[in-house]
Write a protein that binds this DNA or RNA. Structure first.
Lengths: 340, 340
DNA sequence: CTGAAAGCGCTTACAG
DNA sequence: CTGAAAGCGCTTACAG
């Protein structure tokens, strides 16, 4: 036997036809039990594995999902947004549980990205992870829908959105942050992050916090909002801008933990005590939040559950089952940066 | 046109045979320039993409690599070893540059893991990442070689090893750690990590440190060595064991940053000042090392370069080019935990 | 430069 | 329960 064994090789050795081998291997009920055992034994002995290319070609179905991770082109090339890491892990595990293989690829946000994996029949569906300007992104989602590409994305769940989305309850998370700050008596809350409709997740977090503050007789002040993208450097820069404005504030709500960690550094450099002078709260609960000095209060998103749901939803979609967008609850994690 | 367009559809529209379409699309020089342009235009308009299953089946070559990430079954299910993350990123990017798709999968170390991806022609070769007992692992590597599976692994580069390995210069890295500690006048260096041949990377780090200390008139003391696997909890536990031994030491060399960060916590809990009472040095330079309190001195491994080399080596191997194992240099990163 | 033919290794009606 | 036949959509000798 030279090269890899094929089902035909096994058929010869077992004294049956090749289709019978195929049936036996995939557990078809219409194969004689003894014949099946014989075939399985030979297959094992030859270390035979069904050729997935042939199988996928014939079945028009690859048993593979593709994960497209969108990168902010401005961010450090070598680092993946740490928020996505546990999600990546849980997606990988969920795929294994569902018997799906997983292709992974990074996409530049600026790219004219495509659904190549789906178009070339290499994957049955796509999982889209990644921040970026939603308005620019939306057009591409519409194109995917138009082409009949199956996909789910992680992100803000909005009405009338193209395709399927799974995201956390950003509004609720923002409320939790706002309620917490209000309960500490903080009324002048700065927000670091783009709060426009280009970034609907950040936008909702801002709105939620504002709602909670209003219920406590305060409100977000636009003069205390500074744009920032989700990176430590951007958070550092935004906090410095805020400080230079010389407007009074007693709390910072950062749109993400990375922004918050950058802000922590800028605030400390100016000699501000955290949380005595300024309470700081982030969003995501990435591993670094716990290690930060002081440890960062934040709004937790269940990325493990999220990964599972993304895979389940996509598998459902591919199998033609009715599947819906979904919003996951968040929870507040109080640490020293707000209640030292 | 219903469903996805095929090369035959394009052939009809372009008024040529299907093989000509195939040739034009893959840039064969033996197609009339004008014909090619016409075909390409139609293909673009139809959003045609070559069916990878058909193509791979025919060519017996998938243009895909598979990354198998071995997990320590004892570690927290939801976290990937942070050391691997930048590597994962650079592997993904390197694959894109080489025109390779990347499949990713986690494997339990205890699994009877397999080269399914390669056996089923779904991938042309494997990249193996992951720690674990080397002696148990080696047998599986030999089996891969025997079956003719192409693979590269990240890990200790040892003589007479089955297959191709890329790893850092662990001995040299250990020496850098030892020299640094010796230059600070530290002579009683504890080592946290398994230093046996079951973990050749840790073993080499230990040996390197010992060599450097000996040149400075000291040496590692086996009484100051405690086994630990690469996790924060394990490092914490190991440091406590060490403290309970009541043996004097003025430095800790941890086999990895995670171990070091756990040790930092245990030492601080006992009221030891770092670095005044105990200098601490890790290995890897994961992102958390910079954030730790105090910031952790460590031995840097170039994971970005490593990822690239792994992909390059595997692609070379798959293409039948002569390819060799390789050892990457390390460098010392001095921070407050050794020189506050 | 182009086309007709064969074949990669499966899966799935269709007959028996 | 089993086999002969067709076909998934390509790529690649082989002829011309």
């Amino acid at each position: 036997m030279k090269g890899k064994a094929t089902s035909l090789d096994i058929a010869h050795l077992a004294g049956v036809s090749q289709p019978t081998v195929s049936r036996a291997l995939r557990g078809s009920p219409m194969v004689n039990e003894e014949t099946r055992r014989r075939i399985l034994a030979i297959a094992e002995q030859l270390n035979y594995k069904v050729d997935k290319n042939a199988s996928s070609l014939r079945r028009q179905h690859s048993g593979t999902l593709a994960l497209l991770l969108f990168e902010d082109p401005t961010s450090d090339e070598s680092h993946i947004n740490p928020f996505f890491l546990p999600m990546l892990g849980s997606i990988t595990r969920a795929c294994a549980r569902h018997g799906q293989d997983l292709l992974i690829s990074f996409q530049q946000l600026s790219d004219d990205w495509h659904a190549d994996y789906a178009d070339s029949n290499k994957a049955d569906g796509l999982i889209l992870l990644g921040y970026g300007d939603y308005l620019a992104y939306q057009g591409k989602l519409e194109k995917l829908v138009e082409q009949g590409t199956q996909f789910v994305r992680w992100g803000a769940v909005l009405p009338g959105q193209p395709g399927l989305s799974i995201g956390c309850d950003n509004l609720g998370g923002g409320r939790q942050a706002g309620e917490h700050l209000a309960s500490l008596g903080r009324k002048r809350v700065a927000f670091l992050g783009d709060a426009s409709s280009h970034y609907p997740e950040f936008h909702d977090r801002y709105l939620g916090c504002d709602q909670a503050l209003r219920e406590a007789g305060a409100a977000m002040d636009p003069a205390l909002q500074i744009d920032a993208e989700s990176s430590e450097d951007s958070g550092y820069a935004a906090a410095r801008l805020l400080l230079d404005r010389d407007a009074a504030f007693d709390a910072v709500f950062a749109a993400s933990d990375l922004i918050a960690i950058g802000a922590l550094r800028a605030l400390a450099e100016r000699g501000l005590r955290i949380p005595e002078d300024v309470a700081v709260i982030g969003f995501d609960d990435i591993p670094a939040a716990r290690i930060a000095t002081p440890a960062l209060t934040t709004v937790f998103q269940d990325t493990n559950r999220a990964g599972e749901l993304l895979v389940e939803a996509l598998v459902g979609l591919v199998n033609g089952e009715p599947t819906e967008s979904m919003r996951l609850p968040t929870s507040l994690v109080v640490r020293k940066s707000s209640s030292g």
